[in-house]
Design a protein around this nucleic acid. Sequence first.
DNA 1: CCCCCGTGCTAAATGGGTTCAGCAGGGCAT
DNA 2: ATGCCCTGCTGAACCCATTTAGCACGGGGG
Lengths: 341, 341
Amino acid sequence: MAKRVTLADVARKAGLSMSAASMILNGRPDTRLSQEAHERVNAAAAELGYRPNVAARGLRTDKTLTIGFVSDLVATTRFASGLIKGALEAAEDARHFVLVAETEGDPRREEEAIAALLDRQVDGIIFATMRARELFVPDLPDSTRAVMLNAINARHRTSVLPDEYTGGRAAVELLVDAGHRDGIALLGQSDEAERELFRSETVARRVAGIRSALDEHGLSFAREESIWLWEPQEGYEAALRILREDPGIRAMVCMNDRLAFGAYQAAAELGMSVPGDLSIVSFDNDEIAAYLRPGLTTVALPHEAMGRRAVELLLREPDHGQSLVAMPVVERESIAPPAHS
Amino acid sequence: MAKRVTLADVARKAGLSMSAASMILNGRPDTRLSQEAHERVNAAAAELGYRPNVAARGLRTDKTLTIGFVSDLVATTRFASGLIKGALEAAEDARHFVLVAETEGDPRREEEAIAALLDRQVDGIIFATMRARELFVPDLPDSTRAVMLNAINARHRTSVLPDEYTGGRAAVELLVDAGHRDGIALLGQSDEAERELFRSETVARRVAGIRSALDEHGLSFAREESIWLWEPQEGYEAALRILREDPGIRAMVCMNDRLAFGAYQAAAELGMSVPGDLSIVSFDNDEIAAYLRPGLTTVALPHEAMGRRAVELLLREPDHGQSLVAMPVVERESIAPPAHS
DNA sequence: CCCCCGTGCTAAATGGGTTCAGCAGGGCAT
DNA sequence: ATGCCCTGCTGAACCCATTTAGCACGGGGG
């Protein structure tokens, strides 16, 4: 294939200078170039299939139409790949491209990744984490914009976070609406047991939302089970314990879908049916939520919407505030009215 | 923060010309610059924290230390995100960066993505698909390298694919080693029913491997069930049908883990235990394989290794051949010797 | 007739680096 | 003393675009 077409080729073909061609192709206002010049340049560019060299342009203008996406584990684990998907979509809509780097949370790799992104003159950087947390960010040039995605940082205040408080409330409302008043357990969190621990900013908000809705209805949990690792095996064991020791449990709020998956397995083992004997509501809307039988009703982490939002904020002037993205309720079949015993 | 340090700053500080500084920093051999000049330049660069501007260098050298990753749905779905993870890791090891684009298989978006990557002067492009298939690739400049990842293309012959044939054989060997000789079902594929259909190159090889191992042992499937959509719901229904109609079934080869998940649900519903009454082996090593109880033994898709390999091939001279990556057997607890009835 | 202004366009500087041709100056052979 | 080579370095072109200052020309006013 032939060499790439450059602006010089277009100018030559149009019989004008590169300056004229450049101004016309960029649609600069207030140039006094004639109508005819416009036509000749546009025709030449179209005919030759001219596309500007982004790097060369960036050298001059400091805009590369490229943004950096630095994450600990987001891009490459299934848990939060929606973040990157949303970011890619929004970037494409804005005719930008995304340079992706994963650091696994290692500060040295993070620093190196940022330096490498700056070497490539990115217009801005999105910092994403899997578990919303305070993220260390090295110094950036003033001209480099930054947006925190599912993360917070003291210096870079523009953050995109899920609206966990409202989401937490929604989960409780689902059970209450179905008629549950007592016999509700919380699986995965016990404020008492975790007083000294801090999971993440968003988990704290989720729990606060859950408790506020519960309070509002004058209700309280019959049981709370602290679980540090939110995986199916742990959920299974804890649910089994709860259900055995406390036969009055009729509903469960699980802190994530993998715990809920474990709870399903425990219920099955005890011969309890979901949702007939046990209603379950959960958070995240993981892949497995749709695979479970019956389908798991869950309050979704809006990863794609968050990724989109982050890019949109980055490309507009970042506004230095927290941007909360609504968590949609995904209703499936895991909630029913309590059986009257 | 101050303006970026340029080569001119380094040269000035070292009291030498930019040319000298450039040659020294790039470690050019056969320049006759003095030992002392080397030391002065290196010291100046280190002291100022100089990093070359990749875009500017690329303009001259046509090397940007950046590669493009174009995929249909790989990056952003949990199914194959390992591909991107491996690619990112290998790129980082080679001090390269990755520009990611998703096209959802839309040829227009694909063409646009490739053009945009070329605008950014990438050194090469990896084309990845979720389901290994023949992928259309528009014209590329001769200088742009291409590697197909989980895909094949007539013009660009360098491909990275999972070694499905050997993987298929391995799945059968697992059952045979456990003592299974008859009552084995195949869930998800029936050559008879799918004569006219073509899923993908790799599925064909997987099936060929399965059949070759079976033949070698003089065995054959007691039952084959064609399923077009390999999802849990479909697996559940098909497995339920098979197990009801054919009580002699003692083992199942599932074409993927989601089908196996459905088979687990069907077995549970029929009061059969895995692996006591029914052994199950499967493919992919999805997230759910580890979550199931008992753990699902499965032949893994080596996504990360494939992503790595693709980058390595791209950065060396691509060799115009298919590179097969071994599929590791992940042994868990879903296979046991057949109960003697 | 001269000056001024508006119109339509171009030359040249710029961004940050790489690379090639070649320039000074010292040492050596003739 | 002349010519030549070797050493150690620099000037300038080049990559591809953007941007600013200003040139040439024609027309109108004084």
